[in-house]
Nucleic acid binder design. Structure first.
Lengths: 161, 161
DNA sequence: ATCCGGGTTCCCATGATGGGAAGGTCAAGG
DNA sequence: CCTTGACCTTCCCATCATGGGAACCCGGAT
């Protein structure tokens, strides 16, 4: 079953990428259009599974589809300078770091507010007061944008074969 | 201009919430439907601005709209137990923490891969190798979901008056 | 021939947000 | 009085990666 040609379902199972996403990746041009059987079924081989695993791992590291396009290009190019790959990776580390800092700031503020709240049956609450007061919460302002979202829903593991 | 009744533009400016989002919040029922002038213009007062500031600050702390609905309910209820507010806040801290841990894990993995990459003109690259190898990247798996996304685009500061 | 587990396409939803078009309103100035 | 420009209105579309589901077609085993 793994030797040569398989349908999208098995490909999904052995790559860990859902069939839905495989079709999607094809549609947006991240992977080339699959060959079809006479009846229109997409056919894949071990090579395709390899590529899809690469994509999945990159997604798990938080790379966006755009970034993965670049990574795939470098991966396939035997003459790439590893410099470029490293630059891409470190740039992404920066993005992750920016997001982490932002979340840390939120957590920090929220914990400070919560620390002053009795948390009992009385209605007085510094947390609500803080939210209502202007200027309590720092404005995440700039220095953000561009970090790929993801991580919203679990990829719903395809139980990787 | 601030004394009584203002249009959506000024309300946006003084609350820091864009006119677009004010309409959106009304549509999804987060805030009540605004009164209209004869010609259909929405009218707001200082109270509404206060509420919108509350919402904006909660968003800046990463609360989702759903969570803000609850916070608003507690804020308006003079007989709330502060216990409930604190519980909400601490639950959100948990979510933030889960996200932070996830991002830290990605960063960690990526840094390890990058540390072994020469980053020169040669094509050998442990980063690409790691992405291609099965099982290099931990699967964020479960323990995620539900944390509100946001932070993707900067709220495009309404230069808060 | 029938059935079931595939496959296919197509449309819709998520969450919070912005962009932009087409058209109505209002106040100030000629 | 009419124009101008800033403002308002609604409506539709896009983002990003992903899943859900309908309606329909295929292929192999009974």
């Amino acid at each position: 079953m793994n030797g040569m040609s398989m349908n999208i379902g098995e490909t999904a199972r052995s790559s860990g990428v859902s069939a839905k996403m495989i079709r999607h990746y094809e549609e947006i041009g991240l992977i080339p259009k699959a060959n079809r059987t006479d009846s229109g079924y997409r056919q894949y081989n071990g090579n395709d599974v390899h590529t899809l695993r690469f994509i999945r791992q990159a997604r798990n590291l938080g790379f966006s589809i755009r970034q993965i396009e670049e990574l795939l290009g470098l991966w396939r190019n035997q003459r790439r300078p590893s410099r470029k790959v490293k630059a891409l990776a470190l740039a992404h580390v920066e993005e992750l770091d920016a997001r982490i800092r932002e979340l840390e700031a939120m957590k920090q503020t929220l914990q400070e507010l919560a620390a002053h709240c009795h948390g009992d049956e009385r209605p007085e609450c510094p947390i609500l007061d803080g939210l209502a007061a202007p200027g309590t919460v720092a404005d995440p302002g700039a220095a953000r944008r561009d970090v790929p979202r993801r991580l919203a829903r679990a990829p719903k593991r395809a139980s990787c074969h």
